[in-house]
Amino acid sequence: VRLVQFQKNTDEPMGITLKMNELNHCIVARIMHGGMIHRQGTLHVGDEIREINGISVANQTVEQLQKMLREMRGSITFKIVP
C-alpha cells in the first residue's frame, strides 16, 4: 500500500478512467496520454484505489467517485495498492 499525492487547482480533468473489478475494488482502467495524472506519472493502469483523501471508496459507484474527484481542489491523496 502506498500514498500518492498531487495538486488539483483547476477544472482540468485528471485524465483517468476508473472501473470496479469483480471484487468491487476501484481500479485505474485507463490513463489519458498528456492528462494531469499521466504528466505526474504517479498512478498506473491496474492500480487499486482504496481511499481518496482518507475516504474509503468501498461501496461507492464509479459515477460517485468521478463526481467527487471532479469537485475536489487542492491537495488530493490516493491510498493505492499497486
Rank of each mutant, 00 (worst) to 15 (best):
K67Y: 09
N21C: 05
T77I: 11
V81S: 10
N21G: 05
K8F: 04
I76K: 00
E22S: 11
M68A: 12
F78K: 00
T42D: 13
L23V: 14
L3W: 06
R70E: 14
I76M: 08
A58L: 09
T10L: 09
M14E: 03
V45W: 02
I37L: 07
S75I: 06
A29L: 05
I37T: 06
Q60E: 08
R30Y: 14
I49E: 00
C26Y: 08
D47H: 00
F6A: 09
H38P: 07
E63P: 11
V57F: 03
N59R: 07
K8T: 05
I31T: 04
H25G: 10
P13T: 10
K67G: 12
T17M: 10
V28D: 00
R2A: 05
Q66A: 10
T17P: 00
L18F: 15
I55M: 14
E71D: 13
N24M: 04
Q7R: 11
P82D: 10
N59E: 13
D47P: 00
M36H: 15
K8S: 05
D11V: 08
G35W: 03
H44P: 00
T42K: 14
S75E: 11
R70Q: 11
K8V: 13
M72C: 13
E48N: 03
M68I: 08
L23E: 15
I55V: 11
V4T: 04
T61E: 10
I80H: 02
M20A: 06
V45C: 06
A29W: 08
R73N: 15
I80N: 01
K79I: 03
G15L: 02
E51L: 03
N59V: 05
I76P: 02
I37N: 03
H38M: 08
H33I: 13
G41R: 06
A29T: 08
E63H: 07
D47V: 01
L23Y: 15
G54D: 07
E51R: 04
Q60D: 05
G74W: 01
D47S: 01
I16H: 00
I16S: 00
T77D: 09
M72Y: 09
E22V: 08
V57R: 00
E63V: 07
V1K: 10
E71C: 11
N24Y: 04
M68V: 11
Q64F: 13
I49N: 01
E48T: 06
I37R: 02
G41L: 03
E51D: 03
I37V: 14
A29Y: 05
G46T: 00
N59K: 08
N24S: 10
Q64Y: 13
Q5F: 10
K8L: 11
V45R: 05
Q60K: 13
I80V: 14
N59D: 10
G15N: 03
V45T: 14
N59F: 12
N21V: 06
I27F: 08
V57G: 01
L43T: 01
I80S: 03
I31H: 01
V1C: 09
V4S: 03
K8R: 11
F6R: 02
G74V: 01
M72H: 12
L3R: 11
I37S: 04
I27Q: 07
R2T: 10
H25Q: 14
H25A: 12
I76A: 03
Q5S: 15
F6L: 15
R73C: 12
E22A: 11
C26D: 01
T17Y: 12
G74K: 03
R50W: 06
T17V: 13
I49T: 02
N24R: 09
K79T: 09
Q64N: 11
N21Y: 04
G54P: 00
I49G: 00
R73K: 14
H33T: 13
L43E: 01
Q7A: 11
N21K: 05
Q40K: 09
I55G: 06
P13Q: 05
L18Y: 04
H33K: 14
G54Y: 09
E12C: 07
I55L: 10
S56W: 04
E12N: 04
T61P: 09
E63L: 07
N59S: 10
K67I: 09
I80E: 00
C26K: 05
I52R: 02
R70P: 04
V45A: 10
N24I: 00
V1L: 07
L65K: 00
N9T: 14
G34Q: 05
E12Q: 09
N9C: 07
H33F: 07
G15H: 02
N21P: 03
L43P: 02
I27P: 00
P13G: 11
Q66H: 10
G46P: 00
L43R: 01
V4E: 05
D11S: 14
N59Y: 07
T10Y: 07
G35P: 02
K67D: 14
Q60A: 10
F6Y: 07
T42P: 03
L69Q: 02
K19T: 12
Q60S: 10
T10H: 09
G15E: 05
G41M: 04
I55K: 13
V57K: 01
D47A: 01
M32V: 14
H38D: 10
G15P: 04
M20E: 03
I31P: 01
V1M: 15
H44L: 06
G35M: 06
M72S: 14
T77V: 07
M72T: 11
I76G: 05
G54E: 08
V1P: 03
I31V: 09
S75W: 10
H44Q: 13
M20I: 10
E48G: 04
M36P: 15
I16K: 00
S56I: 05
V57L: 06
I16W: 10
E12A: 08
R30F: 08
P13N: 12
N9K: 15
G74C: 02
A58D: 10
D11C: 06
Q60I: 05
V45S: 04
N9A: 13
G54H: 08
S56M: 07
M68T: 10
N59Q: 07
R2G: 04
L65Y: 03
K79A: 15
M32F: 15
K8Y: 07
K19W: 05
M68Y: 10
A58Q: 12
H33D: 12
E12S: 07
H25W: 03
I76E: 00
I16R: 00
E71P: 05
I80L: 06
N24F: 04
L18T: 02
F78A: 02
A58P: 03
P82L: 04
V45H: 14
L3K: 11
V28M: 00
Q66M: 12
M14H: 04
T61W: 01
N24T: 04
D11P: 08
E71S: 12
T17K: 14
T61V: 03
C26E: 00
D47K: 00
E22T: 12
M32S: 15
H38W: 11
E22C: 07
F6V: 15
V4W: 03
M32Y: 08
H44V: 11
I52L: 06
P82G: 08
L69R: 00
K67N: 13
A58S: 11
I31K: 00
S75T: 14
P13V: 10
V45K: 04
L18I: 09
L65R: 02
M72R: 06
